[in-house]
Design a protein around this nucleic acid. Structure first.
Lengths: 223, 223
DNA sequence: TAAATAGTGTCTGTAAGACAGTATGTT
DNA sequence: AACATACTGTCTTACAGACACTATTTA
């Protein structure tokens, strides 16, 4: 089969979540202002075309864009889904592989354009859809995994972690149930009491092996 | 930004699962035999490059390939993940968007190359990896959703459904717990007793709205 | 000692697994 | 009547939610 048929455009976009001022936020950038570009000057997700010389693979490309935008090299990174159609880019048939990342903001919010997911502005291309899907996935996984822990800098305390869960899930959780759940799964390592901003110091924890943990299930597989 | 930079190849591949002779099987095809092709004559997944003139979007492309190979127009179809790297295709940087489909074999197994997932032959490209990932996803979702029901022709009985679950999950399930689980979720519609191959007829069911249902969870969201 | 936050204990409800039992068809 | 298979009931266990309680720090 000959390979000289037209090829779609292929890009990678990254939805980068973090917590800022007790809100779930994500990082946006701005499209170039030239009128020749689609959606000139509009807000969009960080991303861009695959560079077949620099990028080893899809995840490498996502990791590169993440590093360029945030300086963070090893956050939690997961492939979300791909979106491709004849219509999504005025320049022609195009597909994008969307990744989402979770990281803890160093503090001063870095220099990026962090926007609360609760009030996203209009975005270029189908990026609003990508954000929606990423948010759905994050929330879904928050229901039954330790994923939201990756939004926190280590070490963190259980009250802090619960707050992050409540921000992600959008509802209050019972303290006792939450603590039992987290500690029973045995995916956290104690690293000593944290002086704490509050009144009483709380135990600090790190994620063991920095791995994702899943909680209870359905057809409860017997040991 | 100019668009005259080299573009990766973009294809769609489909992992099509079904049940045949009480085994989980998937559909394979054969690579063209010409020596100019990569992996000539080897088994692989059905799929191919996006046709930017015929394919509206990624899912449309997957649906087209599925229809071409199986004649089935509306099975369960879900995007699995994308796989792309400089190395996976000798012809250059290439990416594929993998979908997986579940369907009931009409009966005589159609004419395709259906192979049990338990003993897959070597496949072209990274298609063995794709199959493994699809199988993982199917099994994972089988643990907490009604997904395996899409492997059965409607109407089906609960004993039949349980058997499919046991094939997918690879372990026996308790009959009483299984029935309670399925019926309590209320995603099945009774459609009358099925004469049944067995001794006693069993109630037949259809999937209500042909929708995917998820079972119990973790942070049990209160009503 | 009061206030605030960290952390625990106890009760209850839900649902799954185990498993024995009953129901209804065919031969 | 014997059988095979469909279906149900009961007991136990695990665990989440509710909520009240205790513990430990600072001011």
């Amino acid at each position: 089969m000959a390979l000289n048929f037209p090829r779609p455009l292929l890009s990678v976009d990254v939805i980068i979540f973090s917590i800022l001022n007790n809100e779930l936020v994500l990082l946006l950038t701005r499209r170039p202002a030239e009128a020749a570009e689609p959606f000139p000057g509009q807000l969009c997700l960080p991303g861009g075309f695959i560079d077949i010389d620099r990028d080893e693979d899809l995840e490498g490309c996502a990791r590169r864009k993440l590093l360029e935008k945030t300086g963070v090299a090893t956050p939690y990174l997961e492939q979300l889904a791909s979106f491709g159609s004849a219509a999504r880019d005025p320049r022609g048939w195009s597909a994008t592989v969307a990744y989402f990342a979770l990281l803890a903001l160093p503090s001063a919010g870095s220099d990026g354009l962090w926007r609360p997911v609760a009030s996203l502005p209009p975005l270029a291309f189908d990026h609003e859809l990508l954000c929606r899907r990423a948010l759905e996935r994050l929330r879904a996984k928050g229901e039954y995994s330790s994923l939201p822990a990756f939004l926190l800098a280590e070490p963190f305390t259980l009250p802090q972690l619960q707050q992050v869960y409540e921000i992600v899930l959008g509802r209050p959780l019972d303290k006792s149930a939450f603590r039992k759940r987290m500690l029973d799964r045995d995916f956290l390592d104690e690293v000593g009491l944290q002086p704490g901003a509050g009144v009483r110091p709380a135990m600090g924890y790190r994620i063991r092996e920095r791995q994702l943990d899943f909680f209870s299930q359905s057809f409860r597989p017997r040991e």
